[in-house]
Design a protein around this nucleic acid. Sequence first.
RNA 1: CGCGGAGUAGCCAAGCGGUAAGGCAGCGGUCUCAUACGCCGCGUAUCGCCGGUUCGAAUCCGGCCUCCGCAACCA
Length: 537
Amino acid sequence: MPCLRPRSLISSGPPMFYLTTAIDYTNSAPHIGHAYEKVLADVIARYHRLRGDEVFFLTGVDQHGQKVQQSAEKQGVSPHDFVKQTTLRFTTLWEKLGIQYDSWAETTDPRHKDCVRAILTELRDQGQLYKKAHSGSYSVRQEQFLQDRDRDEHGNFGPEWGEVIEIQEENWYFKLSEHTDWLKNLLESTPEIITPAFRKSELLNALEKNSGLDLCISRPKERLQWGIEFPFDENYVTYVWFDALINYISFAGYKSAGNPTLPDFPTIWSQRPVHLIGKDILIPAHGIYWLCMLHAMGFSDAQMPRLLVHGFWNGLGGAKISKSTGNVVDPDALADKFSVEALRYYLIRDITTGRDAEYDIDRLVMLYNTELANEFGNLCNRALNMSQRFTAGTLQIGSDLTEDDLALQQSLTSTLADYRAAMDDFEISKALEAVNRHVVHCNRYAENMKPWELNKNPDNRPRVATVLYHLAESVAHCAVLLSPALPSVSAKLAEQLRLPHLTTLHLADLKWGLIPSGHTIGTPTPAFPRIVIEKES
RNA sequence: CGCGGAGUAGCCAAGCGGUAAGGCAGCGGUCUCAUACGCCGCGUAUCGCCGGUUCGAAUCCGGCCUCCGCAACCA
């Protein structure tokens, strides 16, 4: 068969989908918000693999900075050891939650440090960095410069700051102000840079206020040792911006000089990457600093990343979740109590991407029990069980299709389309609703067809087979559609169906007839055990 | 008049110009293949308030009220 496409396109392969998350600060244990972002990213990444895209999913931890240095001192360990121990809490949690990342970013990684230094040197040579003295009020105890907003109602610095002295300090600055006009134009001309759209006006507004100011990017070593040393000024380490943010490119192979342990940067960054971040770090970190940094490094407008900004999980009544209010939720304990599947499902099902949601354990249990255990889980079980009992586990594709059969197939078709559209827009919740719609359709179909009734008369054998095939085939489709959200369950169902290839299918392969005629399935066991809550007195 | 979100049935929530999805909870019924699951039926929601535009508004415009976020740690 002749191929009409130019050779360059043939060899280019599937598109690269590069997805990153914020890297978490290794100062304390991961909480529900950390888990949300990573699960969301994992679902998006798995969906793109399902689409057949080439995926590079990067996540990791931010290990430098003063807080870490202080926490380590408090514990009487080195920052290195402290960070090693906290990082382990993150990696073990991700493993438990089934977060399948392709690469792991740690800012203490020598490869990352080399990249940061290479960038700093280059920017300095291009005149993008300069050294300047700053004087102001400095708290010796807190080891930081104070702002006017830190003053109390009398205009004084309170006792919480300890001794406050006036000092002068030199630091390195990045010429941020040279890039803000460009950024303004970019944001106005390229709406896809930022999702959801309403964040754009917020960002433009902040940009207005920020204009004219350059960015302080260093800390003198007397104040901070736990960081990356400047390549051309050994008395300074980098402050967070030219450290943490760089991870998005350093671990993608930027300036790695062909280091075989890192990927090929042009391949990874061949189209706009997606940075999944929380709404708290859009302004100014990602929305302003990072984009301007990339611009200074010579990235073109077409290479600017997409910022996918998610909302927060708040406590009931919209209360902020924080350590001080004591309503922090430990995702590890939740997974133990309700299962990883229930937690993953809840975190992506009960929130609209980009908006906030209220965290409520009752809803976690409710959504899992109704949509997964009762509706889908029960559908799987009844379908496979009837096949075992009525046709000895063997499925026949069937003929003489009725209107009901065709309606079921139609339902699946529209679910597939809705699912795809929603997932492409990162609307995970909508996509899951679409799957659920078909599940409900199937249960209704089963009620109406009553195969257990038909089976009483041997003449109905072919009809029973056709009905059971429609149910089993639907289970197979739904198992694939749910695989980004619940990979382990999908694998379990593939096993029960004795269709191992389901786990490696692509979205485009989802056509009626996944189950070959004459195929024999295995025995079902509940894939979603109901969560039963013991009544607490 | 700082900026930005949000206000839809008891609760969660979709819709964003054409007589208000869905879910949960509740009530009644029903099947038995199935995880006491499923299925069927039952809700008059002045879509925060007031005005305007329109043949027609939850959806557009104006005004008002209420709640949340906008220092730092932090997704």
